[in-house]
Design a protein around this nucleic acid. Structure first.
Lengths: 224, 224
DNA sequence: CAGCAGAATACTGTTGACAATCTACACTTG
DNA sequence: CAAGTGTAGATTGTCAACAGTATTCTGCTG
């Protein structure tokens, strides 16, 4: 049962850890890491045993992830890792672009110098990752960059939604950004977003934010 | 034997009813009808007894509603009906406006004559409701109008999100639309949306859809 | 009478068992 | 041999009881 001996340390936020929360995070991680295939059924009993808990917390966690769009459940048959169609993916990208644009616009209205400095730092780190040829590092910094925009805009619900949609997109398990040119293009867009936010130009920031995500969709389509 | 004799009546959908689903819908209805106050704590044991089920399904239903934004849960203290601040409400309205605009734009690209005819019928029924001075009828037709746009646009995730955000807004328990002039203004906006969709002008439809929802926010602010 | 310590109570978190349902496979039957 | 049927095993849905935590009440002390 020693799978999650360190989970306690990670959940030092506001509320004491709960098995349901731990299972939820562990399960989400498993799905996003691709340790379970899309469309695969999850066995409650097995999962519970692996994590050293009862089926109750597993079921509750599954319900939560279902609403996040990572799982779909069928009565009397169990929960399945969600399989995303091309049409679904297109829609997700567009939704995400809309919300990202909104977040960028809100952030531009605030135009906090410290936040823009931090964002700029991320873009530099991404440049470094490109030079080093480290795709994984770029991937992580990219995630951090967008997450930072989301939480700094002060729009909680939108930020949650943006993050949640991001997880759904990652269900497709394709690494869109790959190779020097692609990464450099993407990071150039990042810098344009930061510039617009720094200038306090909300509508330009919205446009750049949406464009970046729509370009992401285009890049994804080209990989098919 | 006639397995599905009564199943069709209770649930004409795809999957057979489950206690968790029933509890979820009942609870959601209770919250949206305002039978439980905002901020109030829900007693699992009491709810389970009232609905004649065990605590398990109640807990699962609560987890689902938590993700819908109708409930918030605190470890070891239970779940509470969500209380929405003014800032939150503003954000919800804006998010909803964005998504509504997106849905209207998508629908305009399809421009199905039958759908627009049905939408037009709704606006006529709303006119009738105004003439009859029946605010409740208007409220329902208004809901149906927007729901019809959402499901006809063919963007499932966006439609779900739009509906979900609508429920969150309704948590505030204020009837924004009231009185002849207010209703007539609102319905005029509906007709402009339908006209744009009928014309197949996606960007105009998006603009009208967003404007309608932003005006809704303005009307709500004026009631404070 | 106000304030605090500690016990009593109520409630949530979790568990293991039982019931209902689905799936797979072997068997019968034309 | 193919198709349908019945049974066995596996899996989910539901329940009632137990354990840990937060709240409330009581009684004591200054």
């Amino acid at each position: 049962m020693g799978i999650n001996a360190e989970v306690h340390t990670t959940r030092a936020r506001k509320q004491r850890t709960t098995l349901t929360c731990e299972v939820r995070e562990e399960l989400e991680s498993m799905i996003l890491r691709g340790e379970v295939e899309a469309g695969q059924r999850l066995n409650e009993h097995l999962l519970a045993e692996q994590m050293g808990v009862s089926r109750g917390p597993v079921r509750e966690a599954a319900r939560a992830l279902e609403r996040d769009g990572l799982l779909t459940s069928v009565t009397n048959r169990g929960v399945f890792v969600r399989k995303i169609s091309v049409e679904n993916a297109m829609e997700l990208y567009e939704l995400r672009a809309l919300i990202a644009g909104h977040l960028c616009a809100s952030l531009a209205r605030i135009a906090d110098p410290q936040v823009t400095a931090e964002l700029r730092a991320f873009t530099c780190q991404m440049d470094d990752a490109i030079s080093a040829g480290d795709d994984t590092a770029y991937f992580e910094k990219n995630l951090a960059f967008h997450h930072h925009i989301a939480i700094s805009a002060g729009e909680h619900r939108s930020a949650d939604l943006y993050t949640s949609l991001g997880k759904e997109v990652r269900l497709m398990r394709v690494r869109v950004l790959r190779g020097d040119t692609s990464l450099r293009f993407s990071n150039t867009e990042h810098k344009r977003i930061v510039a617009a936010i720094e200038a306090g130009d909300a509508e330009r920031a919205r446009g750049e934010g949406m464009l970046h995500h729509r370009n992401g969709r285009r890049r994804w389509l080209e990989t098919l």
